[in-house]
Design a protein around this nucleic acid. Structure first.
Length: 427
DNA sequence: CCTCCACAGGAAGCGCAGGAGT
DNA sequence: ACTCCTGCGCTTCCTGTGGAGG
């Protein structure tokens, strides 16, 4: 707890030069180790500048592998190329993250139709022509579609639609079908003395491995005309990424090469996530800065790692549904107490059986004045928690009570308990 | 070997809230 | 503003698996 709310603002900036460079949203000028991917996307989109049909692009990769950055980077260059003087094509780009407010075909369509580019005054057939937002919100998807098609057609627009986290859209199949259908229905028009043909191209981004399989086969073949997988970065690659950012984001000479390598190694262990690496770097810098030092030490990196891990668990745990929190709390509590079953002789102290865990959960519910869920649902909770990496489950080996799960906690029990006591309002 | 225990996880169904369609 | 539908969280019921004990 800081003594003064503005304490952070007062400490001298000994480490950082430009913090925005470390933010996950920052798209650098150069993208190390992703030049092949950039080339591929450029190749897929390039035809749009010649008024031809580009390929739809589908991008898959885990978090922090540079998917969004690559796409945004290419998009930036595409806009520049389209605005260059000799260019005669109209290129519109709509980017949206489907998780945040655009999780249905209707909302996606609305967002596209509201885009300022499509409603530019020098366009004819603007989608919002003579309409207020209120009226627009009452329109059916079919009307929205018609308006969009008309605008694209009348102005010969090459429209690039980027759907980030596209797996969040409930009716993706219909959405993709609708958007690609535009290409089949529109006709060539004359505008400014030139023949023009509008085009729509979709770029889908996801980190869900199973997403592709859930798609309708037809959607799959249209959306994935050009599909690419982003591999996680290895430690060396992460090092160069960090070095690039350090050059612009940090003051010179504040961190030794060996410590950058350490951060990279930590992040490489955690799925090769560049975002995580940057977070570690930032945290290490903050720790050094707090102590008014002008160099990041190895100890700072190590402390940053535990700090960031704690932050992640905290965020994960506190946003959990109540009963999952109770389950986790019960597990932590039982592990601290050493369980309530007769322990087997050679049984390690850091594990629990699901049966005793359920009893602990029932007890915790009683203490909190909640009605416990059934055993069946409790198992679902456990599986959910495993998905999030908060617990690990394994089947019991030989010699122990038939079929039962062995539960281990992903983080130190005392830490989990502390977080949950607060979050659940326990003394 | 048979039965019982302790558990895993699939299938069906239920009540509810909120969104879509009219 | 109306119903209708659908997804979600959950319970109930059930089948299957493997150890323990008679």
């Amino acid at each position: 707890m800081s003594a003064n709310l503005f304490e952070g603002a007062l400490t001298e900036r000994t480490i950082f030069k430009d913090l925005t460079v470390l933010s996950p949203h920052y798209v650098p000028e150069a993208l190390p180790h992703r030049s092949e991917e950039v080339k591929k996307v450029v190749k897929a989109l390039a035809p749009i500048l010649r008024g031809e049909k580009p390929n739809n692009v589908f991008v898959y990769g885990k978090t922090g592998t540079g998917k969004t950055s690559v796409i945004k980077h290419v998009i930036r260059h595409l806009t520049e190329a389209a605005n260059a003087e000799k260019s005669t094509t109209d290129i519109g780009i709509v980017y949206m993250n489907c998780r945040i407010g655009f999780n249905s075909k209707y909302q996606v369509l609305l967002k596209i139709v509201e885009d300022p580019y499509l409603n530019r005054p020098d366009h004819k057939e603007r989608p919002l022509d003579g309409r207020t937002q209120m009226k627009l919100a009452g329109m059916s998807p079919t009307d929205l579609y018609k308006r969009l098609r008309k605008t694209v057609e009348a102005n010969g627009i090459g429209l690039v639609i980027v759907l980030d986290e596209v797996d969040m859209v409930k009716d993706v199949d219909e959405l993709i079908y609708l958007l690609t259908r535009i290409n089949d229905e529109i006709e060539q028009v004359e505008k400014d003395g030139q023949k023009k043909l509008g085009r729509v191209v979709i770029i889908g981004i996801t980190n869900s491995f199973s997403f592709k399989d859930k798609l309708d086969p037809r959607t799959k073949s249209t959306l994935c005309e050009e599909d690419m997988v982003f591999r996680p970065y290895n430690a060396d690659e992460l090092s160069t990424i960090l070095e690039e950012r350090i050059k612009i984001g940090l003051k010179s000479g504040v961190i030794a090469e060996s410590n950058v390598a350490l951060i990279a190694a930590y992040a490489a262990q955690t799925n090769g996530d560049a975002r995580y690496a940057l977070r570690l770097l930032q945290k290490a810098g903050e720790i050094a800065q707090k102590e008014s030092r002008d160099r990041i030490k190895k100890e700072d990196v190590i402390a940053a790692k535990t700090g960031v891990e704690e932050d992640i668990t905290f965020e994960l745990v506190t946003t959990l549904p109540e009963h999952q929190q109770i389950v986790l709390y019960a597990i932590a509590e039982l592990l601290i107490q050493g369980g309530n079953y007769k322990r087997l002789a050679d049984m390690p102290p850091d594990i629990l059986f699901s049966g005793e865990a359920y009893e602990g959960y029932e007890k915790a519910c009683k203490a909190l004045n909640r009605t416990p869920r059934t055993m069946r649902w409790f198992r679902e909770y456990l599986n959910d928690l495993e998905m999030l990496g908060l617990v690990t489950l394994s089947v019991s080996g030989k010699g122990v009570r038939g079929n039962t799960s062995i539960i281990r906690l992903g983080s130190p029990p005392a830490e989990v308990k502390r977080i949950l006591q607060h979050s659940l309002g326990l003394k």
